[in-house]
Simulated assay, not measured.
Amino acid sequence: MNWPLTTERLNLQPYEITQAERVSELAGDKAVAATTFVPHPYTLEDAQNWIRTHKEWIKEGKAYPMAMVLKSTNELVGTMTLRVDHKHKKGELAYWVGRTYWGKGYASEAAARMVQYGFETLNLHRIWSAAMSENPASTRVMQKVGLSYEGKLKGDIYHWGEYKDIDVYGMTAPDYLK
């Protein structure tokens, strides 16, 4: 694959180890971790270790963790990942956006491009995503890119001392092609 995947305002491209410090700043924000699956605290070492796994994941087609980078300033604003299950030809969309970039539509823009990549390039049959029920911004991203609500997983994860509900959204290739 030739990277980056592009959108109107973003380049979605594999991470460089030089971005680890910025990743730990953005993902390490307690507000980001509060309603996502990002661990907290999130250290520089955590970011470096995570980025070091990417090359192999991409080569094997297991996951495509992409840095969401503003075309205009080359700033890292977040992550858009597609994790692939080849046996079932499905992908899981996972993402986070740095707090200073919330509400600007970057996640929706990147998710739409990643969904396109999943269906048109990887020929997936299904793409799905999940978010904590208390994270309406994340569920709006899923809705904006055409994923449909499939259900609530009650008390599915243990997060910061309590069980949280998860909302699941998905789309199949025939729905995408409509």
Rank of each mutant, 00 (worst) to 15 (best):
L10I: 04
N11M: 14
Q13R: 14
Q13A: 12
Q13C: 08
P14F: 10
P14I: 02
E16T: 04
I17F: 03
T18Q: 07
A20R: 00
E21R: 11
R22D: 02
V23L: 06
G28Y: 08
G28T: 06
K30D: 07
K30N: 11
A33Q: 05
A33K: 03
P39I: 03
A47Q: 01
H54W: 08
K55V: 04
E56A: 15
I58M: 05
I58T: 07
G61E: 03
G61K: 03
Y64I: 01
M68H: 05
L70A: 12
N74V: 01
N74S: 14
E75D: 13
V77T: 13
T79P: 00
M80C: 12
T81K: 04
L82Q: 06
R83Q: 10
K89L: 12
G91I: 01
E92W: 11
L93V: 05
L93D: 00
Y95C: 11
Y95L: 08
Y95R: 09
W96Q: 02
V97N: 02
R99P: 01
T100Q: 14
G103W: 14
G105F: 12
Y106D: 00
A107P: 01
S108C: 07
A111I: 04
A111M: 03
A111W: 08
R113D: 00
R113I: 02
V115F: 15
Y117W: 15
G118E: 06
L122W: 06
H125M: 06
R126I: 05
A130H: 13
S133A: 15
E134R: 13
P136L: 11
S138P: 02
T139I: 04
V141W: 04
V141G: 10
M142W: 09
M142I: 02
M142C: 10
M142H: 05
V145T: 03
G146K: 09
G146N: 10
S148P: 01
